[in-house]
Design a protein around this nucleic acid. Sequence first.
RNA 1: GCGGGCGUGGUGGAACUGGUAGACACACAGGACUUAAAAUCCUGAGGCCUUUGGCCGUGCGGGUUCAAAUCCCGCCGCCCGCACCA
Length: 882
Amino acid sequence: MSGNDQPNGSATERYNIREMEPHWQKVWADNKSFELAEDDPRDKMYVLEMFPYPSGRLHVGHVRNYAMGDVVARYHRAMNKAVLHPMGWDAFGLPAENAAKKSNVDPRQWTYDNIAAMRNQLQQMGLTLDWSREFATCDPEYYAHQQKLFLDFLEAGLVTRKKSRVNWDPVDQTVLANEQVIDGKGWRSGAEVEQRELVQWFFKITDYAEDLLSAIDTLDGWPDKVRIMQRNWIGKSEGMLIRWEIDPATAIGGIEELEVYTTRPDTIFGASFMAIAPDHPLATAAAKDNKDLTAFIEKCRRMGTSAATLETLEKEGVATGIHVKHPFDPDWTIPVYIANFVLMDYGTGAIFGCPSGDQRDLDFARKYDLPVVPVVMPKDADAASFEIGAESYADPGIMLNSKFLDGMANSEAFDEVARRLGNAEVNGRPQGERRTNYRLRDWGISRQRAWGCPVPIIHCDNCGVVPVPAADLPVELPDEFDLSKSGNALDHHPTWKYVTCPSCGADARRETDTMDTFVDSSWYFARFTAPKASTPTVPEIANAWLPVDQYIGGVEHAILHLLYSRFFTRAMHKTGHLDLDEPFKGMFTQGMVTHETYQNDKGVWLAPDQVQVDTVDGDRVATEIATGKPARIGSIEKMSKSKMNGIDPEDILNTHGADAARWFVLSDSPPERDVQWTEAGIESAHRFVQRIWKLVNEGQTLFSQSPSEVDTDTADADALRAKVHRTSAAVGEEIAGLRFNRAIAHIYELTNAMAKFVAETHEDPDAAHLAALREAVDHLVVIISPFMPHLAESCWQALGKQGLVCDALWPEVDESLLVDDNVTLPVQVNGKRRGEIVVPLDAPQSMVETKALSLDAVARILGGKPPRKLVIVPNRIVNVVA
RNA sequence: GCGGGCGUGGUGGAACUGGUAGACACACAGGACUUAAAAUCCUGAGGCCUUUGGCCGUGCGGGUUCAAAUCCCGCCGCCCGCACCA
């Protein structure tokens, strides 16, 4: 690829990427083109892409994400908006600590070095970012304000402390993240991981469960799938709390009842066992003098804490010997099991198992030989013969085997059970109460890690938990960390945690937990509106800009990050930092970037640059370059280190340029879907850059000629004008709707039409043709500018335009050129296309009918008989039913 | 396991609210230019057949409709998330 040095035979030089891209980047920077003026009076538009973790190298997924945001931002600049388009760094987190442990570097140094490298790469992309607003979440100037927010939330009653479980590595003496637990073992030590309870800090997101749920309905700028995922995550259910009396003969530890939450009280006569979580108080009591139970609970404790792990386990349980009495039959007792699939965090940590109505319960019952009594059956089933085999029946239906409920719809049975249990009493309280439950749990933010935002709290033996006074903020991280030791470096730092109590002056200790990095990213979008302010936000400014008009990021953040940000916005509202509840008006989740995988004959993964791919007899064949041996072309997968199928954007930017890279990642695939990176694809984008340059220059050459007499027939000039205006309108609409791939297809079509037109016009340029071409080129340069901003500037300059195309307005679309006088209607016979007719727009039915029926193909099939039916959809289609 | 999504030519995809399936691009083939190559330009193409015509065709199997990639029912496959990765 050395194409920049050779003239191609015509007068047009190749477009020199390596010269022009840095040139325009410098021009934009020197002009401060993308720095937003505080007093810009135009309509506001806030475009934001999820800020990256500074790993040190840009990933192709970032390129796609930021290319999308930049196209949107540039389009809105062209629509004459004041566009806020900032960038920063999600800079706290595990990788810095891991790097520090591995290579003995300072996590702070490592992080800021990475930021410098990535900023440089982002700048090479030619983005319209306002770098004057940049910050990293590990800047004390940022996290100081986060600590202030924590204190304000604490004062507002939005923070709590409680016990929760963590993955504990007994060898490394450290808390492990879920991703550090592999097959139940610590990734570094290989030791069996244990669950351990720690007292931790929580944000009370559950206080907002109902609000976070109901407000989802207002988020009409979000993808439906994200809204559905959020709804399901919050998981509202209407059920009952039922108190089951423990049979005194089997009671242990003086516990007299078992509280159970259920969404299916109607199935109460199908109950055949009770299951409690391994860490349920009753389980603890039962295990006290019971080795089997203790062993089982121990086993459960070594399963890790992630829900995915727990729920994919084989369902197991152990009977406690405890029995409960059935509320409607004092002689019926039901055994209580400790089960590995019941979670203490959900409901009451105890369930009643109804095997006929729940697959998980059925599997459990079959395994332990418990009764399976069908209590709900489909409407049309027969009560005498209805049985449960391998599958439970969980759908609505009619009650059976349920005494006084028999024959009712199960929804009626729900109400009847609620009524009866509400009137009964156990230990002086109602035996049953209706209860709305949420799956959503409070947000545990404590992390036992050094590279995070310190929780601004001091523990004093006299005063207990004491907030750090606002005047003492920030609580800064120490200058030096010793990450070589296991455990939390803040905790074993020689001096950092030792302070005096701000309340009584006695010796006290700092909280050594830091905050979850999701906290950092839950309000950065607000900080960008006033990044230098001495308070977390300047409310007037933040309220003027927020909510973010268009937020773009990976679908992997569809639940947690977005939900936490929504909570934070509400919490900041409550504490006076913001005056709104929903942070993101428009949300978009982009797909991943994938690539083929390659393996050599030994099964070793090969990187794309270690492989040469050729086409032999129409088949793609890969060769390992180092050995010359054939390599296997494997499946297309998400780029990953392990499979070696990643592409380094830096290489792409250097060889093909930012414009080609931006163009490629947005073409072909719809943005919400995965895009496959291919060498052919980026090369074609590169060729297209050159093609536009040539086209603009050829047009330019034509304009400089003096036109011949105006041709009386200007039909093809008019056709081009219609195409141009239609394209400008369509590209604008597609960008506004984030359908970049379609916008690009429109641009291809226009350039194809223009190339043809240029070739024809060369013969005999007349005034009408030259005017149409001139207009086409003018439009083209502006509508490509969001995608290929450097090339567009070069073209703009070549055309002798004033100023910069990044400041130019979108072309005015002449609506009168968009309407066609005639429409082409396909004509079907029995739903199969047999021909087409051309009729005037809004032609009368009789004309359409006559023309359609007179088509040869139609007449032949009808064979002289009249059609049975004629369906005419005006201006769309004709269907003849023979 | 639970929740969400996706599935269309050799490939990525397009197809508006049920209305011409395959736009646009890649790869491929043929041609022009060239001493040659690259680059560029032009042309062709879903599959099958008895080829101015016909049949089949949007993961699979049914259904609704004048008309289904699109709606409904039942399957299959792949991908993402699951609360300490970010």
